[in-house]
Nucleic acid binder design. Structure first.
Length: 295
DNA sequence: AACTACTCCTGGAGGC
DNA sequence: TGCCTCCAGGAGTAGT
């Protein structure tokens, strides 16, 4: 499930292979995933050249020539693969089903862009939840505004005071749902939420208003360090099986039944806020007020 | 305000 | 092997 680090890794790969390429053909196989601001079809993309790529939270934004922009959101299971004329992969990222290196197009490949160097960009999404918007550049910010995206956690402007301010608005909300709420922080999903909360030694059910200053500092450091590590180390490639894991990531998510890397207690999986949630029952601190010792 | 439930989907895992 | 059920989850919406 592509989260901020996965989308950023994908962006950086595509930023090396796509700019300068001109779209010469588009094959839209699942019309519902494509939303054009003018209600038109994807054929309007032909003869437009890729200028540059950027990212906002989990949105991948591809700026095109002639006043057009493509905005991708891969949601749960979208993947993008760019292959050259010989079928060699130039860039890839997102959800690892179908497996990297699998023949494309796949039965769940819903959009295929042919480029002027005979390379091909495949959008595959087994869940069909992903979306591609086409719009003039002036419409991009309004689209992102409608998503009410919170601050970029890797932006230098995202300080502990900014985080404290976001949480102060929702003092009675629980920590994990807050981290997953894109209007609080942009780009965190279920896997990284578990990792961040573990690293910060907090609990998913801690009330935002009960996190003290030291806890806020740990949470802020955890958000930055977990996401920065994931981007810099290319954790997306590990999660996706492209690269062998040479690091202890993830530390808790998906590791139920294995020892906590910090204290050795067995990691447990619970269902919290409707999501599979992994925690260490020992070293993730109990909340201050909601959970009395006798509870 | 803040929670839960539901919707959209289908591959994959597990049970039998 | 094959059928069945359940789970996975981002985000939007409706209901409580």
């Amino acid at each position: 499930m592509p989260e901020l680090p996965e989308v950023e890794t994908l962006r950086s790969e595509l930023a090396r292979s796509l700019p300068g390429r001109t779209i010469v053909g588009v094959d839209l196989r699942l019309p519902k995933i494509f939303v054009a601001a003018d209600g038109g079809g994807p054929e309007a993309l032909v003869e437009r050249t890729v200028l540059q790529l950027r990212r906002r939270a989990k949105f991948l934004i591809v700026e095109l020539s002639q006043n057009a922009t493509l905005v991708f959101h891969l949601r749960l299971a979208g993947q993008l693969v760019h292959r050259d004329a010989t079928g060699s992969t130039l860039a890839q990222g997102g959800h690892p089903v179908p497996a990297w290196g699998a023949p494309l197009p796949h039965k769940s490949t819903h959009m295929i862009f042919t480029l002027d160097d005979a390379s091909t960009l495949y959008l595959t999404d087994i869940r069909q939840f992903g979306r591609v918007w086409c719009m003039p550049p002036s419409d991009v910010e309004p689209l992102l505004d409608r998503a009410r995206l919170g601050p970029e956690p890797l932006d230098p402007a995202f300080t502990v005071d900014v985080l404290a301010g976001r949480l102060a608005r929702r003092p009675r909300a629980l920590l994990k749902p807050l981290l997953l709420d894109q209007s609080v922080i942009g780009g965190v999903g279920n896997i990284y939420a578990d990792e961040i909360i573990f690293v910060a030694r907090l609990r998913p059910d801690t009330l935002a208003g009960e996190i003290d200053r030291a806890g806020l500092d740990r949470l802020h450091r955890a958000i930055r360090s977990v996401l920065e590590f994931a981007v810099q180390y290319g954790v997306a490639r590990i999660l996706n099986g492209i690269a062998a894991s040479g690091c202890d990531f993830p530390k808790v998510h998906g590791r139920a039944g294995t020892p906590c890397p910090r204290c050795g207690t067995t990691i447990v999986k619970t269902r919290f806020a409707g999501r599979g949630t992994y925690t260490c029952p020992t070293c993730q601190a109990a909340p201050v007020a909601r959970r009395s010792p006798s509870a």
